[in-house]
Amino acid sequence: MSRMSRYLEIGSSPHVTSGASVDVIMRNVVYALLPVCAFAIYSFGAAAALVLVTATLSCVATEQVLCRLLSRPSTVGDWSVTITGILYGLTLPPDLPLWMVAVGGVFAVAVGKFLFGGLGSNAFNPALVGRAFLQAAFPQAMTHWAAPLGDARFMDLPQSTLALPFVEPGYDAVTTATPLALMKFEGIQAANQELMYGLTAGSTGETCAVLIALGGLYLVARNMMNWRTPISILTTVAILTLLMNWLEPGDYPRPAFMLFSGGLMLGAVYMATDMVASPITNAGCWLYGALIGLLVVVIRFWGGMPEGVMYAILLANAVSPHIDRLIQPRVFGTRGGKT
């Protein structure tokens, strides 16, 4: 509506736009992610910085090379692949060998994005595709967590970070388990404050729930993110956990633990809201969020793995076109049902 021309414009719909183009939205997402990245580097040191840089560079480079190979105009300038890279980096363990980071980054963009047709056509969130590949390819390295706030984190790199390509990384002694693994295998729940302020082990960007939520609020305030998806996910998880915790308090954690631990906050705010792979309608977003929340709870409580946000979102991505078909807005002037 912002740009009204004096001339009669003739073109196909849409005629009314919000004025926000892909690159404006994407740039703002990058701003919202900066505090999360900063905290990741503060918490895990130089290794996390290198992981984030490598992840972003590998994704951007892959996009550039593939655009060139396919003789398409470069889409690097619209920032979307930068976000894929940063988000992908934020989901990785901080002491992951950099060559694995690069392998996953190439996979994320080449298979997760370009195989489906590039920007706007990806069925799954590319960042999570990259992470899922690494999880399947290198399960040992992907379940190895550095302790946060180590003493020498800015001066020394972990032995594993600079492992040569194709060489099995060696590890330093200082490692720990994530709060979810502690909960699942030993029944120890971390305190709320530790989880909210990010004093626990985990992927580079998933530990500090508060900063992630603040970034999400910024995007919602600027009307650049559909708030229904994260709210729906978090509410579903909270309600289901409350129910289980009420039925059998000894076996299931409290809702706050579930909300602030693991990748749930990062996934709900930044991954599930991927504009391409999530439903279009508002009602669809509620349903999609509820599905992710349900899957997260099921995988975390009854699955073999301690964390399930990644698989929950990828599965929900797969059904989001069906959600869209299920909840089709009524065309103005017609009666519901038939079109």
Partner: peptide, 9 residues
């Protein structure tokens, strides 16, 4: 020794 196997394969 030390070759990182790609479990996924």
């Amino acid at each position: 020794d030390g070759f990182q196997t790609w479990t996924v394969m």
